[in-house]
Design a binder for these strands. Structure first.
Lengths: 145, 145
DNA sequence: ATATAAAATTGTAATTATTACAATTCCGTA
DNA sequence: TACGGAATTGTAATAATTACAATTTTATAT
């Protein structure tokens, strides 16, 4: 299915910008911030405005075509993978990873919600990612230089 | 145990301000933002500075005496209840609720973490809280006024 | 009690992310 | 081809957080 059609299935009118942004999200399976989306696309879309990026990402989330992650305190980031899956934030490098391998119990809504109506669940892990852990291990091996 | 002692057990030197802040967090089991802590304590602590609130809350989190929640996109909020428990954010009123009644599977760390070292887990729900849901129901009953 | 040094607190200014809003551009339809 | 509504843009405003230097507090040694 083309990005054009994909947007339509989510009731999003597929404009130039929206197609480009969604294409970017779908292609690069990173978890970009609004800023990142802007700076990566801006070179090839000279007229793109940051406001459009914010508006469009918000629209995607409203229409269920992307999810917003608040795992990083500093800024929201976005994920075009709308299947329920856990996320991991490395406190060292700030990168956000998918964690599809987490058992999926948590995705089911609890029986007792105190009367609250739930329409979203997210599971966040934080710590040190593999790469950063390896770097730190190396540093310790040769402490003096 | 006094708040004074409580801070000591977390290796936090118990200054006036730290005691007051921690007391506030422990007493009011809300999930205040830094701003909220400041505006609620400021009347009784005329010299209190917002920077101190930020510094102190960050210290509490570092020392494991409180946890920071990023469930609300706009600003971090803090919880002196450091037991693992789920949280619910009402998108209508912005309030954050504890959800101790959620089955605790999610709290266990997954076997396969792709090599990442996990030291924190948080489970977030979002939706409409009971109060807001009731309000909305009432509105629908008498639509014209 | 007093001097001293380190740690904590404060106030201000800077930074960063996000939103508000008015002006302009784009696009489908008559 | 003109019109009108939606989308996009740029700028300015807002809000949360941090940086940092100056001041105050606190604990300790004299």
């Amino acid at each position: 299915m083309s990005t054009y059609e994909y947007l339509l299935t989510h009731e999003i009118k597929p404009s130039q910008q929206r197609i480009c942004l969604m294409e970017f999200l779908l292609k690069h399976r990173i978890h970009p911030t609004a800023e990142e989306v802007y700076s990566r696309l801006s070179p090839s879309m000279p007229t793109l405005s940051k406001t459009t990026v914010y508006n469009t990402l918000k629209l995607f989330v409203q229409k269920g075509a992307a999810q917003m992650l608040t795992i990083d305190e500093r800024n929201a980031c976005f994920d075009a993978d709308i299947t329920k899956h856990a996320h991991f934030l490395c406190k060292e490098c700030g990168k956000v990873y998918d964690l599809h391998e987490v058992p999926s119990h948590w995705q089911q809504l609890p029986e007792d919600t105190l009367g609250h109506l739930i329409d979203e669940v997210q599971l966040y892990y934080r710590g040190t990612c593999r790469k950063c852990a390896e770097k730190q291990a190396k540093k310790k091996l040769k402490p003096t230089k």
